[in-house]
């Protein structure tokens, strides 16, 4: 199967100007490749840089070194040097990100929040809303919450909204950052099911799974992120 996302010598160092310019290297020389239908679990101790790597892959953090090649519109897009417009387009079409935290837009109902990326990707609004409802039901989010803005939802409820938003559009590449952190066993199983479905549809998945059970159920291989020594 083809490689949908790969990195070459990816590096990231944070420079904290507010702390006298302290330099914190987090990633160096990361070479990672993920194929269609494959799920790679990032492992490593807390603070090693797993989330940082995810965010670099999504363009949320700017990598300081190396390249990120994403399969996009039949070609390879180099994300580190891509102008913002192209990153936005890549996020719309080819790569999705499910984070632990839901950034809430005031006044927009849950179903609309979930439907939005699907509409951006070309689905009709009514189809997107149907699929959104179906996903939210599948994730056991009570019907009465579907039209409410998620600002007042519990952590677990917000996470399920995130999951629906991430799995709805059918991105070829999916980044999952602790997708089951706030869920109970029953809902964890549902998420495992969603990941399996996505893999079968050819999605390349990179995930951080704190829960060993989930990791074992979905990961085809593990990629270890080693913590770096602090620079002087």
């Amino acid at each position: 199967m083809s490689i949908l996302l790969r990195t070459e010598g990816l590096g990231k160092t944070f420079t904290l100007h507010l702390q006298g310019g302290a330099r914190i290297p987090v990633l160096a020389g990361v070479d990672l490749a993920v194929r269609a239908g494959e799920c790679v679990a990032l492992s490593g101790p807390s603070g090693a840089g797993k989330s940082t790597l995810m965010r670099c892959l999504y363009g949320n953090y700017g990598a300081g070194a190396g390249r990120i090649m994403l399969a996009h519109r039949g070609a390879e897009l180099e994300l580190v040097s891509a102008p913002p417009r192209e990153v936005i387009e890549a996020r719309r079409q080819s790569i999705g990100y499910v984070s632990q935290f839901l950034r809430v837009i005031p006044r927009v109902g849950t179903r609309d929040i979930v439907a939005e990326p699907m509409v951006a990707r070309g689905m009709t609004r009514s189809d997107a809303l149907s699929r959104a409802s179906a996903l939210l039901d599948h994730l056991n989010l009570p019907e009465r919450l579907h039209d409410l803005p998620p600002a007042t939802f519990s952590g677990g409820e917000q996470q399920r909204v995130n999951l629906a938003r991430g799995f709805g559009p059918g991105y070829p590449v999916l980044l999952l950052d602790e997708p089951t952190a706030s869920l109970d066993a029953a809902n964890r199983a549902i998420v495992i099911g969603l990941i399996h479905e996505a893999k079968q549809a050819g999605t390349a998945i990179i995930g951080i799974f704190h829960d060993a059970e989930v990791r074992e159920a979905v990961a085809d291989r593990v990629f270890t992120v080693e913590p770096m020594q602090d620079a002087a």
Binding site: F14, T15, L16, H17, L18, R55, G59, N60, Y61, G62, P84, V87, I88
Partner: peptide
């Protein structure tokens, strides 16, 4: 300047870091 979430989540310039924090 750059992608909004990148500039706000991973600010590079000292002033931007100050502003965001």
């Amino acid at each position: 300047q750059g992608l909004t979430d990148r500039v706000l989540d991973d600010p590079q310039h000292p002033y931007t870091q100050l502003l965001v924090s």
